[in-house]
Nucleic acid binder design. Structure first.
Lengths: 241, 241, 241, 241
DNA sequence: TATGAATGAGATTTCATTCAT
DNA sequence: TATGAATGAAATCTCATTCAT
């Protein structure tokens, strides 16, 4: 009757996609907070616009919901990783940029880190069953490979290091900083989420990777010139030149 | 009557300490396998020589039991770490030894890795409440600090890197290889527990750390001699000297 | 726009009768497979060309649907039973034919047997409420009565046996072979659906009925001649005449 | 303090066997009444001295409970069947006694009949998984076999009929009278539980079996004497000799 | 006549924990 | 110190049915 009849009742057009996304968002928070076994379907439902019943309607089971959350998290990261263009930078700078990107992404997506940790607690069995995730991370490796190849061609990188290993070295450090934040913080009395540490760590891992990739300094081709680009970046901790 | 009854059952002296250790061992396996929330007190009791009642008698609650498992795991690692004597080695070799030790330890103690992961899933709140664990890891840092100091004094290490950061760089990589074995293995099609990868990775992380610690090559103190010990270790992938 | 949209979907004239039959066929399979309580409306809807809503539109409820299935099953059997013409055969042969027909019908309509079993599990309460089923089986009894009367008139059947009892003796055996196929098969290690058993059993029940109907052999009317038609049919197990 | 302290609280010594039997009895009634799918664990628990939890404690699941009920029902019947001694009777009388026993047992144990019907609705899959039931019914067959053998030796039974088939003929009729009580009663307007029908039916099935077993009357060994024991029993419906 | 989303009520099952002895 | 039975509370999941269009 009134022009804004919808205003009286909160507009309730059935919008399955929105319902699903609503559930997924809440579920993600719950899983991230409590793990797979610790999460409660009731708790998820309570914070949702819909009911517990709908969770089962759309996702079949608690595990199905968890898998959907996991798949979405991986899909998100992929979408973002694609945006990075490193081909125009010289190899060492490209590596540094890539490390920084990885570092920042992990740092700003602790939910993702936790989901991956949780999935590993469960032996990766959900990921293993997922069709949508498997070939997902090839893109990252291609990027690393391209940079390493360029570096080798230009003589600024050595030929010995495997791209996946490089990716792992980077990932491990960035991931660990977030995943082991609590235990590491307690045992060493450090707040890994502090801005100061963050900057220093970001520089350190980039330095470590770049130096690792540098050609063997004592080798025949090595020389002051060749090593020049490998200089450690200016560190906040160092007094500077 | 009583005399006979006693004779029939093999005399079972109550041995509280043994009972506790039995429970702890079983509980540890269960927690490692399923996480804190996923572990079942019933399952633990079933695999124990004693009964559920004893678990509560000795550990008060499921969480108490979990904490005891966690504390024991940290105590074990500490006991082992003490055995390592690195003071007699030149700095770079000492670092390499230390990295290798860390690598091997993590590799051969996946239970410990998983317990730490689980504890981080739970925001480290049990560790935070534990009295026995806190000062535990200072020993490692002292070792690193001693080596770095020696290296700096001898001019083979740069002055800029923080010992805790170095420890973290090492730990992160070694830990990640085990903790993220499942997801990484799936996404990149690699079996991180294979012997070949293990050897290569161990070398890589040692190389990376040692190179990171090397003084800035372009600096005034740098020179072929100084850099000699920093050469990349012989790699299986490299064609040789 | 609309013209195209219409063109894309193959024009689907609503055909209520076809929809109902589709639902009934699927529902029957589901009820037969799982029983009344065990059947799932969702499962039925999923295998149907239409949706769950239509089930309720046409049949009102799960029980309404079940009743419709039951009524249809009884209607089918009636239609078939009418086709049998036994009046031209001599009484004993007529009985044998009727037994064989019953046997074969039950054997080849296990769905019907199961529906009847299910209905008995539910105390026949749906059948009791059904208007269409009640007078249905009178036809069979009329057939039996006619044969018995003829046999009595001709002196080859005794007068003592009630037609409904005869029908029950036949039905019981034929029904049991199908309804209790599983438990009997397991307990006695026999496959009641095997062709060999089928033939032997068909002969046995016919023999049993015919012999039961034979006049008391010791009675005044008994004699070798009278008993001749009552000879056991040639059995596969017997060495022959 | 008082001599009958137990009188105040209903004596609650833990008696697991009694608890289990209590649950079993109630469960049996519920399954018999509603079938496996239709039965409600809540309903069972409500009529029990204990709680729903104990049902799961002792029987693991609804299906586990159902299986226990089924096994107990079969165990009961076996225990009773053993008590029957037929070896001292002449063959035809032994058969009659056995038929009557079977008839009376089925008649007075409709619960058992219903459980078997229910189990067949579920394709006998629980029975198939049961270890305790399988070899159970061999005893019955041995009894039949012994009687048939004796009858054949004495020349009063023919050699052609298989003991299991005989058992099936008897069982089928007795079982059907109870299992199909509802539908048969409705369709033919008969109350199968009435005493009059019961007596007549019992006589009929015994007659049918005995006559079936009689040697072929037209055969060389047949004669008035041989057939004498095969006379139909005096029927209430018949005027008698 | 048809439909996909939605749902309340209730089903089965699980779990850490305690009681009585 | 030990034990088997017991349990309340809450977990996951299911189901026939209806609503809005």
């Amino acid at each position: 009757m009134t022009t804004r009849a919808d205003a009286e009742k909160p507009a309730r057009k059935p919008d399955p996609e929105r319902t699903k996304q609503d559930i997924l968002a809440v579920a993600r928070a719950e899983f991230v907070e409590h793990g797979l076994s610790g999460a409660r379907v009731d708790a998820i439902a309570a914070r949702t616009r819909t009911t517990k019943r709908m969770i089962y309607y759309y996702f079949g089971s608690k595990e199905g919901l968890y898998l959907a959350v996991l798949e979405q998290a991986y899909a998100d990261i992929r979408a973002i990783e694609q945006t990075l263009d490193l081909k125009s930078l010289p190899p060492a700078q490209a590596i540094r940029r890539m490390v920084e990107f990885t570092f920042d992404y992990q740092e700003s997506h602790p939910d993702f880190i936790r989901l991956v940790s949780i999935e590993n607690i469960h032996h990766g069995k959900h990921l293993a069953r997922s069709d949508s995730i498997r070939q997902l991370n090839e893109a990252v490796i291609e990027v690393v490979t391209e940079i390493l190849d360029r570096g080798k061609r230009e003589g600024v990188f050595c030929a010995e290091v495997d791209p996946v290993d490089v990716h792992m070295l980077i990932s491990a450090f960035c991931f660990f900083r977030v995943s082991n934040r609590y235990t590491f913080g307690l045992l060493f009395g450090r707040d890994l989420s502090s801005a100061a540490l963050r900057a220093r760590h970001k520089r350190m891992i980039a330095d470590a990777v770049i130096r690792l990739l540098a050609p063997d300094p004592a080798g025949p081709e090595a020389g002051p010139t060749a090593r020049a680009p490998m200089r450690r970046s200016r560190s906040a901790a160092s007094p500077g030149p």
